[in-house]
């Protein structure tokens, strides 16, 4: 019996490339995880603001002040803002990548999505955490009942 000779491989051994973070995978996973959170957050938001009581007709400044009197809705709205806007922006990014074939157009649209997302996240977060239920510039009859009488 003769010894089998194994021919040399056609390509020489190449060290594996340095593994980079697979952002597309994490984006894909984010859509599903944030989606689960958003089902609860959005339907809770819609129920309290749109379905219960008199619906949207009972929303005014005093209604918001009443909600933000406890940390519960502050945390709820913060999670809602961040989860929803990033979920939406990532979805729009996918759609732009699907349909905007021209490089310049795609870059402009992706930049617009990124900029608007960052601006609205900062704006929304500032509004939630700097909210004053009894501001000095309030017109008569707009404040919640718990504000000190001027």
């Amino acid at each position: 019996m003769t010894t089998e000779t194994i021919p040399a491989p056609r390509s020489s051994y190449a060290p594996p490339k340095k593994r980079r973070v697979n952002w597309e995978k994490w984006g894909w996973l984010y859509m599903r995880i944030s989606g689960l959170f958003l089902v609860v957050l959005i339907f809770g938001h819609l129920f309290v603001n749109l379905a219960s009581g008199a619906g949207v007709r009972e929303i005014d400044f005093a209604f918001i002040a009443g909600k933000y009197a406890t940390p519960f809705w502050i945390v709820w709205d913060t999670l809602l803002l961040w989860f929803a806007l990033i979920h939406g922006a990532n979805g729009m990014r996918t759609i732009v990548n699907d349909y905007a074939h021209r490089v310049v157009l795609r870059r402009v649209l992706l930049t617009a999505i990124l900029v608007s997302t960052v601006v609205l996240l900062v704006l929304g977060t500032l509004v939630i955490y700097t909210f004053d239920p009894c501001p000095a510039n309030a017109a008569a009859g707009t404040l919640p009942t718990f504000c000190p009488v001027k």
Binding site: A89, I95, T130, N137
Partner: peptide
């Protein structure tokens, strides 16, 4: 539905932010 909700969300964050200007 996703694109529709996204554009509503942009408007809705802006209109809610007016709560910081004044109650009226």
């Amino acid at each position: 539905t996703g694109v529709s909700i996204y554009f509503f969300l942009l408007v809705h964050i802006l209109d809610t932010s007016v709560v910081r200007i004044s109650p009226q």
